[in-house]
Design a protein around this nucleic acid. Structure first.
Lengths: 224, 224
DNA sequence: CACAAATGCTACCAGAGAGTATAAACATAG
DNA sequence: CTATGTTTATACTCTCTGGTAGCATTTGTG
């Protein structure tokens, strides 16, 4: 299917001259770029009109190419959807993991987590929204893989809440359930935020931080 | 279009014998029932597979009727979607208004609001979820009407938060923005709750109450 | 029972869009 | 400049489904 990727493998196996391998690598990069561009435009349409209502002809037209062009980079429409959903949740998960790697108290970490994840969600709203809306259109296998990523997100968040609970910083009676409310609040941003709308991205991010802090705040505490 | 409804009007105008009017009324009720049943089954499919992916043939089959049967009660597929979305938001709005009519302090009212709306959302999950996911599939005119209902919901909720702010019960720096977070938290229930899942409806409702109370709680307060 | 009105179904159409076979255009190498 | 492989477009097919025209059936009425 992916002739270019195959060519690279063969070049590696045969230990061809460096020039050829370099050329193959460049081609791979170009292929990757084309795939990204297709995905980007597709995500615009999926976001605006929904997955089923979007035609690949319209995506192709937007890119000034034709439908068979898309089919030479993705095996079918469903693969496009999967990659978009995957991007949406993976970006959030990566942002969470990076934020968690910053040393600090549970409160400090939580603040960084919410700030970074909220920013990522706003910046990648199309991908996140499509993921939240179109899960039902994924194949069962794809849906399962996406759910695993989502579960990893909720689990890591729950661990942070658990940590804050043990240290006495947070008042949460059930960390894994609270984690779902927090991740829901973050997801909600994608469904509700509108660029150029009544409130700026920064206001929304700051609000999210405040809301989450209050949700886990022990009774009788004031927050910095 | 709606011959039965028309018949009623004519009967009224002509002041026909009571028997006839009663018969016409019964027919209207039957028509209304059929419409409800169609809507109910359609909402199952829209919820499970999405609006675009659902065929009216499959809805008809589920009801043991045929597609033209559906078309004699709804003028097209879009009207079905509109009624489902409308039901989803209208039920929530009505629940909110009824809860607000209960006398009490802002805190007491807010608790009742969250409890009742959360229950309604869980009970009518299909309608609410379809509304949240398929807004983009509505005609512009239908979408506008739905947005108005949503806006009414957020506005009334904001008014309650404003009241609690003035009385000193709530610590919210921007009531109308906070209202959106609260209504988002409630909406999230529809997208996330799963009947027979890990947590019961009652647990979810109680959690929602706790979360909202914390979100508006003044620093230094403990809740009953 | 006969007639009329309401109700539902059979059978169809037209359009759309996912996916593809095949050929043209282009680049690369010798 | 020719040969070879790669990339993209043209031009389809085939299925599916929203919507409808017209026929059949049931129901109520005198």
């Amino acid at each position: 299917m992916h002739t270019l990727a195959l060519a690279t493998d063969i070049a590696d196996l045969m230990d061809k001259p460096k020039k050829k391998r370099a050329a193959a690598q460049l081609k791979d990069e170009i292929t990757a770029y084309k795939r990204r561009r297709i995905l980007e435009e597709a995500s615009h349409f999926f976001f605006a009109n929904g997955y089923e209502a979007t035609t690949l002809d319209s995506v192709a037209e937007q890119l000034n190419v034709t439908k068979p062009f898309i089919y030479s980079y993705y095996k079918n429409k469903g693969e496009l959807l999967y990659e978009i959903c995957q991007t949406g949740i993976q970006l959030s998960l990566t942002a969470l993991e990076e934020a968690l790697s910053v040393e600090g108290t549970a409160s400090e970490q939580l603040k960084i987590v919410v700030e970074r994840v909220a920013r990522i969600i706003i910046e990648n709203q199309r991908y996140v929204t499509v993921y939240l809306r179109e899960e039902k259109s994924l194949t069962p296998e794809d849906a399962r893989r996406i759910r695993e990523l989502r579960h990893a997100f909720d689990t890591k968040l729950a661990a942070l809440l658990e940590k804050g609970k043990r240290s006495g910083e947070f008042d949460v009676q059930h960390p894994s359930r609270t984690a779902i409310w927090v991740s829901g609040l973050l997801s909600w941003i994608a469904l509700w935020y509108h660029e150029g709308g009544r409130w700026s991205a920064t206001e929304v991010v700051m609000d999210a931080i405040t809301m989450v802090q209050k949700m886990v705040q022990p009774a009788g505490a004031s927050h910095a």
